[in-house]
């Protein structure tokens, strides 16, 4: 059992490759999270717009990509588009797929956050002469963000976990690296090593979220 899952020798051999994979994992996050945050804010504003066409288009976008499993989206982009003559590198396919998925999820959170700010806040700001854009930036958005902070952080955790799907399209992130060593050694220890690193990365964040949730509840 120990030999099959916690083989230190194999872990040491796997270490350099897995760490290199961790770099790719983090790179995906660093690209996708800011892109998703910006895209989702626009989608959320669209979903709350008084313009009916814009509102429906935004909601359709959000719901469509919340309904599609991210792996389906990723494989569709990576394996489907080449048949139409559009070959994408695994990295670009992963970024596009995760951007769409992530934007939809973040947008739904921002939408809920913006809805949670009482109407009086906007009225007070507008009554002192702030423009709609200024009202959004200085009054509504800070409160909306604070109200849904645990959800936003939870979604960041989900994005980090999501990067593991990139291994399916052979992008050399952490799980792909660990899986590669496993298939050579026929030993699960590299996977345990990767699991340990995911845990090291995400456990502090999960504890932090729990603390925020407790504080908001009171």
């Amino acid at each position: 059992m120990v030999d099959q899952f916690f083989n230190v020798g194999i872990m040491i051999k796997a270490w350099p490759l897995v760490i290199k994979g961790l770099g790719m994992t983090l790179l995906i996050c660093v690209v996708v999270i800011p892109l998703g945050a910006i895209g989702s804010l626009l989608a959320a504003l669209g979903a709350l717009s008084p313009n009916r066409a814009l509102r429906w288009a935004s909601l359709a976008f959000i719901d469509l990509f919340r309904a599609l499993p991210p792996l389906v989206l990723l494989i569709f982009i990576y394996a489907g588009l080449p048949f139409a003559g559009m070959s994408l590198t695994p990295f670009v396919a992963v970024i596009i797929g995760f951007f769409l998925n992530n934007t939809a999820y973040f947008a739904e959170i921002f939408r809920a956050g913006l809805l949670s700010v009482p109407k009086g806040q906007r009225e007070a700001a507008r009554s002192t002469g702030l423009t709609p854009a200024q009202t959004l930036i200085w009054v509504t958005l800070p409160q909306a963000t604070r109200n849904v902070l645990p959800d936003l952080l939870s979604n960041v955790v989900e994005v980090v976990k999501l990067t593991s799907l990139a291994s399916v399209v052979s992008l050399g992130e952490m799980l792909h690296a660990a899986g590669l060593v496993r298939s050579i050694t026929y030993n699960a220890s590299p996977l345990v090593l990767a699991a340990g690193l995911y845990l090291a990365l995400l456990w502090p964040l999960i504890r932090l979220i729990s603390r925020f949730e407790r504080r908001l509840a009171h």
């Binding site: 007070a124 009554s127 002192t128």
Partner: peptide
Amino acid sequence: MRQRIGMVFQSFNLY
């Protein structure tokens, strides 16, 4: 113009 009209609300609406 709104800067020349102060408004105080029933529910305060402080940020």
